[in-house]
Amino acid sequence: MKFKFRHADKIVGLFTLVALLLLVIITVFAGVNNKWFTKKIYFTSLFTSADGLKVGMGVNLRGFQIGRVKNISLNADNRVDLDFYIYVTYHDRILHDSVLVLPSGLLGTSAALELYPGLVEGPPLPDGTFIPSTQTVEGKMLVKTRRVDRPAGGDAITDILTDLPEILDNLNETIVSIGNLTSSLETGIKGEGNDAFSSTVRNIEDISSGLDRSIRDVNDVTASLAALAVELEDPTGLVPTLLDPNGSLDTLLNDDNVLWDHILSILVQLEGAMAGVNSLSASLAGISPQMALTLDETIRSLKEAQKVMEGLQNNPLLKRGISKETVPENPGADMREDEF
């Protein structure tokens, strides 16, 4: 009889036992590594996107795996609900103000979530508690205000990678602001907007046109000066004649102030007249509001009268209108006008 038939029972028994032993070893090792037999404390969190999240990914605390992601779902507000559990061994580390972080790696997001425990002393958070993520405002504030136990980065690159999500958020906001500013500049330069920049641009345009006018005036003055210079150069011109020692100007300057006194008296009279004009204009300014009021009232009254007239015109009882006014005849006058 062949060996294998003679010892068939033993061979089959060994074959079966070894296979079962291997299966048990695999199951036990997998169970121990996955902590199948460890009690778990469940928590929930909220993310804005499921990118980088997956069921079964680890939850780490300073590099140690302390839990796993149990479930990911999209809620009614288009946010991502995340259910995860922490092994009971690490439950005492999950304090109030704890935050969940999805770190950025060199090749995209990391393979595990990071948990920053809160710095508040007290009992650990109970089963089912909500722990915010850094993708929520609450989580960001907790990290910014340093209320969490956040590990210091080992090097500059690690620090940058840790802060990368926040930096990217800020960058996005800056880009949006630049976009808005650019569009404002475009509308402002066109002078179409209603903001301060647009009105400033419009003012600059007005100032430019005013400047143009001033430059034209300056040009005119310059032309006059040029003409004066030409006159001065001409020995038979008006200016040399005036400046001649026997000319009119010399006569005016050497008349013992007779002309000057006369001009001065005229100026005094003019000053008095101007003061009168001033007092007149001041009194006019004083009564101008009353005049304006009176005019307003007159206009309003005329409008009312117009309405009344219109009403009377449209009144069916007065269709025939106002009877024609007859001028009474004066027989006496006629008589006087008669020609005899």
Binding site: L23, I26, T27, F29, A30, G31, V32, N33, N34, W36, G56
Partner: peptide, 18 residues
């Protein structure tokens, strides 16, 4: 390698295979 492999071995893998 074996340690990492066991860490990624889930119950569903064993049950599905059996």
């Amino acid at each position: 390698h074996l340690s990492a492999l066991f860490a990624n071995f889930y119950l569903v893998d064993i049950v599905a295979s059996i």
